[in-house]
Amino acid sequence: MSIRVVLPAHLRQLAHCDREITLDSEPTMRGVIDALETSYPQLRGTIRDPATDRRRSFVRFFACEEDLSHEPLDAPLPGPVVEGREPILIVGAMAGG
């Protein structure tokens, strides 16, 4: 399933990719992160801590104007994301940097 993902500047720089990419992914956040780390190995560990598998606390997941950061990683993504009409936004929290 094609999922659109928008990456923050730090990760685009690291992955040498465009702002928005499309991933062939299961329709869950875990699927998106797995597919992202497979396609761009240099992003491994930047979104979730490899030791704990937890989302980094200054990373947030948004889509369809909703905060998905605290949804279970295996929860289904919103319909507009699955249908390709909306992207997942991976965002560095405003407090970071």
């Binding site: 730090h10 560990g45 930047t46 970071g96």
Partner: peptide, 28 residues
Amino acid sequence: SGGWFGQVIQRSQDGGRSWDAVGNEFRY
């Protein structure tokens, strides 16, 4: 490194002109 995205390690093999990310998993 950074507060947002953790640790990465970069390696240059041409004197710092270009860089590639290498392994960044530091697990006790």
